[in-house]
């Protein structure tokens, strides 16, 4: 059976001094994957960097949830486009060598 490392949302909230509702909102909007167990909400370990990024955007930069969703979408698109640029540069490189 496959296992995965998780952290309780409560523990994360105490450590980062954030509200539980914030994590719930992130989970509801699909920005961060959360796991609802019988007793509590948990976050998979691999989601921590993403969650910490959201905390910084919300608490340090005063960006609201709608703004975070927009930024996340644009960052993903930017990432895809950067990968596409790399692929196109590689294709171009082949023809330039000829």
């Amino acid at each position: 059976m496959a296992t995965q490392d998780i952290i309780t949302a409560k523990e994360f909230c105490i450590h980062h001094n954030v509200e539980m509702t914030f994590i719930q909102s992130l989970g509801e909007s699909g920005l961060v994957e959360i796991i609802q167990t019988e007793e509590e909400i948990c976050v998979p370990m691999h989601q921590l960097p993403q969650l910490e990024k959201m905390v910084r955007l919300y608490y340090e930069m005063d960006i609201n949830m709608e703004g975070i969703e927009t930024i996340n979408h644009l960052l993903n698109r930017m990432n895809e486009m950067q990968q596409e640029i790399v692929k196109l540069q590689n294709r171009l490189g082949v023809y330039e060598e000829e």
Binding site: K53, R56, L57, E60, M61, D62, I63, I71, L75, N79, Q82
Partner: peptide, 12 residues
């Protein structure tokens, strides 16, 4: 300015 230049928003 932080919103514009923060490393989270400007990866790499």
């Amino acid at each position: 300015l932080a919103r514009k230049l923060h490393p989270d928003l400007n990866p790499n």
